[in-house]
Each structure stands twice: as C-alpha cells, then as structure tokens.
C-alpha cells in the first residue's frame, strides 16, 4: 500500500506514464481512497497546464522581426 508521501514522490512518474501496470494500479487505488491525494494530483496536473497556457499566449513577433533583420545583415559565407 502506497503512503500519501509516496504518492507525491511518484507523482511525476505517474503523470508521465512511467509506472509499471502494477504500480499504476496501486497508485490509482490509493487515489480512489484518499481525497487529499486526489486534490494533490489534480492541483499537480493543473500546474503544467497553467504554465503551458501562459507560455503559448506570449507573442514574440517583434523579437522575431528584429532577429531576422540582424541575420539578413550578416555577410554571406
């Protein structure tokens, strides 16, 4: 039986799909029985989603344009 502490330690392996079938079943069994750990894993998952949204929302148009101008000013080999 996994402890709550172990659930947090293995959370990356779990969300990245790196646990064996047996380990995954044990993990899910614990989640079914423990609402604290369900809350933990939901929040843990939300972190990457949030950061990805914030990351993708950024526009780099100005920098890209400037960089292209710089490259085109370079002497050709």
């Amino acid at each position: 039986m996994l402890s709550c502490k172990q659930i947090t330690e293995k959370s990356s392996a779990y969300v990245d799909g790196e646990l064996s079938l047996g380990q995954r079943l044990q993990y899910r069994l614990h989640l079914m029985m423990c609402h604290h750990c369900r809350t933990f894993i939901n929040n843990f998952n939300a972190v990457a989603v949030m950061l990805r949204r914030a990351h993708k929302a950024k526009s780099h148009d100005v920098e890209v344009k400037r960089l292209c101008q710089h490259i085109s000013s370079l002497p050709r080999d």
Partner: peptide, 18 residues
C-alpha cells in the same frame, strides 16, 4: 506517510480561471 498538512483545494480548479 499520511498528510499532516493536506493540500488545499484551489479556489478555481480550472487552469484558465486560475
């Protein structure tokens, strides 16, 4: 290995709202 300070439920659970 049990929680003594369990995780809190976040006010908004959708990443968009957060």
């Amino acid at each position: 290995g049990h929680w003594t300070i369990p995780p809190s439920t976040w006010h908004e659970d959708s990443p968009d709202t957060l």
